[in-house]
Amino acid sequence: MVSVNKAIAFQPISPREILLQVSGINVYYGESHILRNVDITISNGQMVCLIGRNGVGKTTLLKTIMGLLKSRTGTISFAGESITGKSPDRRAKMGIGYVPQGREIIPRLTVEENLLLGFEALPKGRKGNEKISEEIFELFPVLKTMLWRMGGDLSGGQQQQLAIARALMAKPRLLVLDEPTEGIQPSIILEIEAAVRRIVQTTGISVLLVEQHLHFVRQADRYYAMQKGGIVASGATSELSQDVIQKFLAV
């Protein structure tokens, strides 16, 4: 990761190009209206955090960006190209790496096979001769010792690290993280936070993060706060006031 994308990190930061633009999407589960006119924008190299209490539609928004859910109205564009009607696998191939809530490790595949599946997001898919780069194991040393274990037999924290590593295999331009610290013991949370911080610093990748832990939220450049399926506040995280935190974080 480090060597290839280093150049991007040293590019002038402004004016930033827009990487992901979500405009006016409305998503329904059956007849219940979940997302209402949601707009968000992520620039190249920006880390954006989505906050809000349980059940306000954060995961739904991420699933819509990934293409797992269809929006009834509105458009999504990625890297200047409309992806509104594209299937999840096409979106992954365009450079969106997804780490879903609950990790979704493929259980009866080994850790190594799970990692290799990350290469499927390369534009031509996995050819079979790709090698897992050492940088992945530098970020997550625990994975190297477990390559032959079944993915489903790992602990929650290990699975989370595996899921992030898997999403990084094909060097995506946007990393989508859905509650990466949920239900994980504190020491591992720190490891995961440190890894994500290192990824952002060294690769210049953009990150869209859903998170409840305040210190993790503070690492982001911008925040969007959601309530009842809509965006109700946004701004730089440095300006994140106690008021907003009280209102939108479940702490």
């Binding site: 797992l68 992954a92 599946l117 990350g118 499927e120």
Partner: peptide, 8 residues
Amino acid sequence: SMSSCLGI
């Protein structure tokens, strides 16, 4: 669904 999110 996760497989398709991986690009398969």
